[in-house]
Every structure is written in structure tokens, then in C-alpha cells.
Amino acid sequence: MGNCSKCKEKAIFLNPNFCKKHFIDYFENKVKKTIKDYGLFSKKDKIAVACSGGKDSTTILFILKKSGFNVEALAINEGIDSYRNHTLVDLKKFCKENKVKLKVVSFKEEFENTLDEMLKQRKNPCTVCGIFRRNLMNRYSKDYDKIVTGHNLDDEAQAVMMNLFTANVDLLDKSNPKSKKIKGFTQRIKPLYFCSEKEVAAYALLKGFEVGFTECPYVHKAFRHDVRSALNNFEEEHKGTKLNILKKHLKNISKIKTSSESIAYCSECGEPSRGKICKACKLLSEIQSFK
């Protein structure tokens, strides 16, 4: 049986092998190292943590709060029946116990319909959800210096591969521990960038966070679902695949000159946009005209 690489205790986690105490130290140190190495933020920054009540965002919220950063939680209620309502209950309890200010904004209040209702008209749940969620996150994080998300190593390696599958070069430089500073956008930060999904889940479990390890009911319709399965199969056969993808990716994008796209502002809502009208306003008008 494997022992901890730091002491003689039984390992509860393999690759790297650690006992409970040393796994928690290893995980927290990895997050702190990412924050330091990539200059993600400082204690002077006012940080919004985009929270869902799931393991990833709860974990990063906990670590940042514990480390003395100035954090508040921002949650989006998309209106996904039997899913988000449960995770938000966990989040509210967590924020109360850990004395974190929480703001919840909903699709229903902002866009007149829940995601479930919108999908009666639109077929791709991830597109609809992504456009509106990004819009709300940016709009409600204007008073903050940074917005932290719980994206982990698996999420980011999947994003790199998804962009390669679709030959989408424009999005490649978004898979970074921090986004570029662009006027109108709150800078996005991913301190769990080098932590695998399994490591985050183990940390959340060991810390006793009351988070359900539940998948979004629409996940099976997502391209990401297939990429995730493929990468996990690769990882099983070739340890380190996901980390190597990100290491190579970061090396490659540091060499690529991305086009300095000029940002416009939506004539409807004033949010940053590639075109005259932003994707959220276009989508909202399509949904409203369907009625």
C-alpha cells in the first residue's frame, strides 16, 4: 500500500502520494503558488468569486477567504430545475457559515425567463446559458477589481482541445490563469488552473464542504462532455496528459501574437461587444420575438 511521500502515513491520494494532512497542504500551496507565479491578484484587490455552490467555486472561495483576501460571492441562478436550486442552498449555507457576502442574480429577473423556459425555443443549452451567464457576471462585477472563477485543470485542458477540434484560434488565448485587461471587462482569474478536477473534489471532500458532486442536467448535450471523457481516457493510459496540454498551451500562446481586436460597446446595453449589438442582446431579442 502506498505511503505519503512526506511522512509514513497511509496515502489517501496517489500521483502525487499524500496523506490527508499533506494533501491539504499540497493543494493549498499549489493554489497560492499559481496566484504568486502569475501575479493573479493582491490583498488590495476587491475580488468577486463566481460561485455555483459546487465543489470548484466553493473550494476557491474558501481558500481565498481563509488566506485573507477581500472576497465576496456572486452567483447566477440560471433557473435549471432540480439542479441550481439545490446547489444554491449549499452556497447560501456556506457563505453564512464563512461570513462571505453573497449576491444572487437570476436569468428570470434579468431576462424574463429561466434557462429551462428559454430552451423551449432554443436548442443548444450551453450556448444560451454561456452567453447570458457571461453577460451577468461582467455586469455585476463592475465594482470589483477581479472576478475569480473555479475553472480547474480539467476544464482548461478541455477548453484547449475543444478549440483545437473546432480550429478556433481566436479563443485559444482565453485558456489562461488570467484574462487580458480589456476596458469594460472585469479581469477574469482562475487560481485552480493547475488543480485537477479529482484533486479539487478530494480537497472539498476532506474539508467536509456540503457540495453535491452533481452534473448539470444539460451536460450530456454538450460537446465538452465528449472531450472530457476522451481526455480522462487518455489520462488513465498516459498520466500527465492534461497538465502537459496546459503547459504546452501556455508556452505556445506566449509566442503567438494574437490579433489586437478592437472592442466596441453594445448600442443596447453598453456592454463590451464584437459587433454593434452584443450577443446577449441579440439572443434576448430573438427569444422575445419568438413569443
Binding site: 489517501i12 496517489l14 502520494n17 458532486f213 452534473e215
Partner: peptide
């Protein structure tokens, strides 16, 4: 009730939970 590594030996009398690490979308 305790997290274990894949290296650990299981006995027939053990109670085991297999938890999915995948959550979210």
C-alpha cells in the same frame, strides 16, 4: 467513511462509496 487511494486493499466486509468527481456543466 474515509477517503482511500486506489492502491488500498478492500475486504468483503467493507462498505464502499464511489463518488463522481465530475460536477457542473
Amino acid at each position: 467513511g474515509e477517503l482511500i487511494s486506489e492502491d488500498e486493499t478492500l475486504k468483503d466486509s467493507d462498505t464502499v462509496k464511489i463518488l463522481s468527481v465530475i460536477s457542473g456543466g
